[in-house]
Nucleic acid binder design. Structure first.
Lengths: 256, 256
DNA sequence: ACAAAAGTGTTAACCGTACACCCATGA
DNA sequence: TCATGGGTGTACGGTTAACACTTTTGT
């Protein structure tokens, strides 16, 4: 046994990975970030083929799939302590040859366990854009944010997975205040509104949005304003966990 | 190759199943029915051990997981053309020895692929109670409906799976008119209300419930009343697919 | 006739929506 | 000084929630 099969060299990984990982099962992560009023997704670029894909990986033989998702994300992008949310499992036997042709991963010379049919478990997470430093792993030429509407054609069915993740995120937004995870600890009301508008894909009334958010009683206005903007300085707010816990007990609707 | 690996005898299945099915991956189905104002779940009873479990099975090597769920359900319970809804994938490596001790399936004498760690993909479905005739397969002593609050201790983590399925069903009830699938084609308003109350676990105002349902404009009142009750005969209604399609276009909220 | 279930209508409170005015700031 | 973005308040309309009376039927 070695220390961490996820640190294997590409050659070893493709030749010996089946000794450590469950066959036919993979993990894919759709990581959302928010920057410049745009919703972004973190993608990896394969070395050699330079095709883009979701950060994904495999499940160790004795590993919980949720832990596998955490560990996969950390090893492939450097992102740690991210709360991942399982949303769907994709099990079409032809996932590997949709509209994009059959994909052979780079580095694979002979036959490999990796060329078998895979069922993939999809996770998404929301991260604070400015706080993370995406770092590509040994399989990847780069690790970059892509604006959600400008994502290139990805390998396998990964475009489908992104689409389904966004649908799941939109539904969640109605039940939980997930959006705050995308923002820095201090944020302005226009920033929060822009976030909601971007995720939901529709524009919202500025005044009503503010009222709704204040009424939820889960954020606190600080005695600070965001300086440096071109116009009137907006107030800063912070998400208040205690208030949120209280609000949950009372029952609360986050629908906009 | 044989015709249908799901028809193998138990002995062959445990000894040779790994030739046909993906290892480490299973399917479990939570089938909901509604009868006597109670929400029920369809369970199978193992031969030999007489322990109860969800109808579940495995994925053929070239089979879509959704097809695997359909086929599994049909072969194990006789239920056909049921719309199954994938809700969660369970991947704790210790699923097989939760509070109930490690479970050895019956018929397994020597080592078997079936004794490995399994990740299971959960599906649920709503069926019209009186329309189906549950039929146990060759592994099962019986196939019966259990009232959701009286389910016995099941094998593996199946109690957890049932709980999660119910949570998923409750959420769906707010977005889609899934409830109608549990009722016969003709039903009364009190029956429909009882169904909602049972699934949601709360009582509702009779008059407001009726108004809400009528306002959705997806059911039609018939010129018939349900006879045979002890009191005033209630009208019969039917779910109207055309109206439902129209309502969907306009946008519609099923929340109670 | 009476109890129990079913059909129907009215009201007030609440929430979502639409909309207008004033303030601060950099160009 | 002006254009732009930000902060705040009000009024209307629709929806929901609370609630009462009448009708039917078996006992």
């Amino acid at each position: 046994m070695i220390n961490d099969p996820r640190s294997l060299s590409p050659k070893e990984f493709f030749e010996k990975g089946h000794n450590y990982f469950l066959p036919h099962i993979s993990i894919d992560c759709v990581i959302f970030g928010f920057h410049d009023n745009q919703l972004k997704v973190l993608l990896l670029e394969w070395k050699d083929t330079h095709r883009w894909c979701l950060p994904g990986g495999f499940v160790l033989k004795g590993e919980d799939i949720n832990d596998a998702a955490d560990n996969t994300l950390r090893m492939r992008t450097g992102l740690q302590k991210i709360i991942l949310h399982q949303f769907h499992t994709f099990g079409d036997p032809n996932r590997d040859r949709g509209t994009h042709g059959h994909n052979t991963p780079p580095h694979v010379k002979g036959p490999s366990w990796i060329m078998e049919r895979f069922i993939t478990i999809g996770y998404w997470a929301l991260v604070e854009f400015s706080k993370v430093t995406p770092t590509p792993d040994q399989f990847s030429a780069s690790c970059q944010w892509w604006e959600i509407n400008s994502i290139p054609t990805l390998i396998l069915d990964h475009n489908v997975i992104v689409k389904k993740a966004l649908e799941s995120l939109r539904l969640q937004l109605n039940d939980y205040p997930v959006g705050f995870n995308l923002l820095p600890p201090k944020f302005t009301m226009p920033e929060l509104q822009s976030l909601y508008e971007t995720i939901l894909g529709e524009t919202l009334d500025r005044r009503n949005f503010q009222k709704k958010m204040i009424a939820l009683d889960i954020i606190t206005r600080l005695n600070e304003r965001k300086q440096g903007g071109a116009h009137k300085a907006p107030y800063l707010y912070k998400f208040d966990k205690k208030k949120y816990q209280n609000a949950l007990k009372k029952g609360i609707s986050f629908g906009i």
